[in-house]
């Protein structure tokens, strides 16, 4: 990371101390007040397998992140939707039109919204370079404040603070369909050359994507809501499917440590795919213990 001066081990130690203090003091206080009917177990043993799976997967991702620091080149498969980001920004610049970035309806605690904000940060660095207007209508006030700071810093990092216009990142409404109507209206009036739809979307997804399609904008979409993916695939030029949304910031920044976590994600898929294949083979031979085991895990 550019300008990184705060190492992870220090952060981990300081964070762990705070976590243990909070948990220790709280448990002590509650131990004195607990009634006999309350479940005072520190660990729910029924969740042991989920816990172990999370630990195993997290350890793999962390290992891959730190392994990536060695500088060894990692193979990451091509993601067409992310390759097209430069094309979309370039097209908007050539046409002299704006870029519209829609973060969806998720709040700031939503992981998909955070992933979307990370992509926005990369997009903002490029629009700062090309001096292309970047319009971000927000549905959530907290998201709007965070995004304003992020985009401002992206412009500063590119040495173009003068090109940053705070008015381009604004709050529209919290209402789902009023937001869709507002964004549609802006699309039709301003005719942005590129539209990014990244984050959490619900029924408004197709309303936004079809309007973007009707004005001829190049559209790159991505969501964690699998029900909305068919709409985006039908109406947008490129769609990030599933985990590609979370891979985007690493893919665009090409930061080794972030790319390492993508490798960890792939190993996670192997960890799931392996038992599925073995389970299918065992079932074909009438051996059911593996299926029974996974049915009991909750």
């Amino acid at each position: 990371m550019k300008g990184q001066r705060f190492s992870c081990p220090v952060l981990v130690v300081q964070g762990l101390v705070i976590s243990l203090l909070v948990l220790g003091c709280g448990l002590n206080a509650f131990a004195q007040e607990a009634t006999t009917t309350e479940d005072t177990r520190l660990f729910d043993t029924a969740k042991i397998w989920i816990f172990l799976a999370v630990i195993l997967y997290s350890a793999t991702v962390v290992y891959c992140i730190y392994h990536a620091r060695s500088g060894k080149e990692l193979f990451i498969r091509r993601i067409p939707g992310l390759e097209a980001v430069d094309e979309a920004i370039g097209r908007a610049t050539e046409m002299g039109r704006s870029i519209m970035y829609i973060l969806g309806l998720g709040g700031v605690s939503n992981v998909a919204t955070i992933a979307s904000m990370n992509i926005l940060s990369q997009v903002a660095q490029k629009t700062a370079d090309y001096e292309t207007p970047l319009r971000v209508p927000c549905n959530d006030p907290i998201v709007m404040n965070v995004v304003q700071e992020m985009v401002k810093t992206a412009y500063l990092n590119e040495g173009r603070p003068d090109a940053y216009n705070e008015e381009n990142i604004f709050f529209l409404t919290e209402s789902q369909f009023a937001y869709a109507a507002g964004v549609d209206g802006m699309m039709v009036r301003e005719k942005p050359a590129a539209v990014f739809l990244q984050g959490t979307f619900f029924a408004e997804s197709l309303i936004l994507a079809e309007t973007g399609n009707s004005i001829g904008a190049i559209q790159i979409a991505g969501t964690d809501k699998e029900h909305q993916l068919p709409f985006f695939i039908a109406a947008c030029d490129y769609t990030l499917i599933g985990e590609e949304l979370y891979a985007a910031s690493a893919y665009l920044s090409r930061e080794p440590m972030l790319l390492g976590s993508l490798k960890g994600q792939d190993y996670g898929k192997v960890m799931i795919f392996g038992p599925i294949v073995i389970g299918v083979i065992l079932e074909l031979f009438g051996i059911t213990w593996m299926t029974t085991f996974f049915q009991r895990v909750r």
Partner: peptide, 26 residues
Amino acid sequence: GISLGVISQSIRIILGIERSYLGGVE
């Protein structure tokens, strides 16, 4: 895929590797 992506993203954020949501690193 989404679930693995969410966990991976969360690890990056918790460990402070992914910081762009804080508004850059400067």
